[in-house]
Design a protein around this nucleic acid. Structure first.
Lengths: 298, 298
DNA sequence: CAAACAATGTGCAAAAATACACAGAGGTCC
DNA sequence: GGACCTCTGTGTATTTTTGCACATTGTTTG
């Protein structure tokens, strides 16, 4: 008998017309979709799609299959909801609390892809670095810099990321050349406000530079970043931001860098809510796809 | 999302109650069935079976899942037939709970005809007289002595049948002649066990003979029948059994008889399952063909 | 017209699922 | 009460499925 799961590949491919698009939706490789469709056509002894390099279009047999497959999908969703009690509908709002840099530079830039995958989910980005309470439902999902140790949450590591010391080219041109770490003592720095710093993981300038001469402080990553661009001083910047900006140059990149982690955190009650799950999967895949960028490989 | 194929494992296990039996039907290893069920329970976050070394029995959640899974199976069969052009109907297993006498003497003797008509349907006879629960899927079809009044079932009358008082010729030769009902007070009888009797419809000896002298009791119709053959006493026997046996003679057949009915009962969810429908049709026709025999016309 | 891009198909390695072998538990029969 | 049978569960080997890397094809753009 044919594999019932193949009907899901069939349904998604019929909706999207391209292997790669259906694959993305189903979180599988496009080769898997191609093979599952071939297997289904073989089992049913029917050609379900007209194939071209431009995409897949339903044949008459495929059109006849469609209502059956759709009914099975509807039945499947009903039984899942009935038995597991979980809402499988991918619609509604998801509030995501993320570190500012990640939100603005990675997630925001990939909203198009997310909306294409999940047109009915409304993703709200809370770009914050202070601790967000999931148990108070301040957000549905949080991305944190450390694994949470308290609360009824489920967490997994999203990715590693690297920060390096960067200076604006304009700044570096006008200041003494930096060939080794000792040369930094004659330079200016940009950093967080010590007593307003909200996460110990953000306290990293001290780890790489002894007694840095800090001339500008802010709690706001974008303010720090813009100040760096304006040649106010040097700062440790996320590689995934700075490497994309030709106005910045890394300073002693082989010697000065710091590694951090992003963690995805969900309240355990929401873990199986379909739209929350969808966002989690999207973020997990997104950061996987951007692995090299996150750790500063160019 | 859960594996849709796991529903097929679920369905077969729900029908057969044992891993090894379901596995055989599905042409897989029993460990596969075990693991697929465990995976499904995990995905649905529900316990679908109560497990014991004696087998698997559906839980409430499992019972709630069953109609959904059955509908998906029905849908799957329809799509397969529609697209591939292959008739998947009329194969599989049907479990039939029937009164012992009917099962052993009428249905069992006509299995050849049934198998000729439907070589791919595997009919399982549960020869039982106690109430069988269709809603718990203990059987797909039940033949009962009364029309069911509860449950989501569909029922229709199969036939009437008659019981008469019979004695072994060997018994009758050695005991006082019986010319009228009063003569029976000097005879011995075989009957059911009063406090273990499971259906009020079986309580019929009292209806035709006042204060019968019962010397042997059993819950088992065949035990009663064999005891009658062995001249232990007289008993009320189904005509369709006794009239075929030259060792038995009816006693006062014009005066002593009782009429009963057989009803065919199906759960409404299974009414349109092809193989169940085929069995229903077969039984309906079979009892129609044997009408005279059932009511004692020779 | 050539380069770049998008999409599919193929070969092979990795991961996941299934089968096999066997141990353990419970029930039946002598 | 013990031997035997039936059934389930576990560990491991084998098979199957999937992902990855890359080749090929067709379309678009400069």
């Amino acid at each position: 008998m044919y594999d019932w799961n193949d009907l899901r590949f069939f349904l998604e491919l019929s909706r999207r017309g391209r292997l790669i698009s259906a694959a993305r939706k189903l979180h599988v490789d496009h080769t898997t979709v191609s093979r599952r469709i071939a297997a289904l056509e073989d089992e049913l002894n029917a050609r379900l799609f007209d194939k071209s390099p431009r995409g897949y279009k339903l044949t008459d047999a495929g059109l006849r299959l469609l209502p059956f497959a759709e009914q099975m999908e509807a039945q499947s969703n009903r039984l899942y909801q009935e038995i597991s009690g979980k809402d499988t509908r991918l619609s509604g709002t998801v509030r995501l609390a993320v570190p500012e840099a990640l939100g603005a530079h990675i997630i925001a830039h990939n909203m198009g892809q997310f909306r294409e995958m999940h047109p009915d989910i409304e993703l709200e980005l809370m770009a914050e670095s202070r601790r967000t309470s999931l148990s108070k439902r301040e957000a549905d999902i949080a991305i944190t810099l450390a694994r949470p140790t308290t609360g009824r949450v489920i967490a997994w590591k999203l990715c590693d990321y690297r920060l390096k010391l960067y200076g604006a080219k304009a700044y570096l041109d006008r200041h003494p050349e930096i060939s080794k770490i000792d040369d930094l003592s004659g330079h200016d720095f940009i950093s967080y406000i010590d007593d307003l710093i909200q996460l110990p993981e953000l306290r990293f300038l001290d780890q790489v530079i002894k007694d840095p001469h800090v001339v500008f402080r802010s709690t706001n990553v974008m303010a720090q970043y813009n100040a760096t661009l304006d040649s106010i001083g040097l700062s440790l910047v996320h590689c995934f931001m700075a490497d994309q900006d030709p106005r910045l140059s890394p300073v002693l990149p082989q010697d000065i860098f710091i590694d951090r982690e992003y963690w995805l955190v969900v309240h355990e009650d929401l873990r199986h809510v379909a739209r929350v799950d969808a966002v989690c999967r999207f973020l997990t895949q997104l950061l996987k796809d951007h692995h090299n960028r996150m750790i500063g490989y160019i």
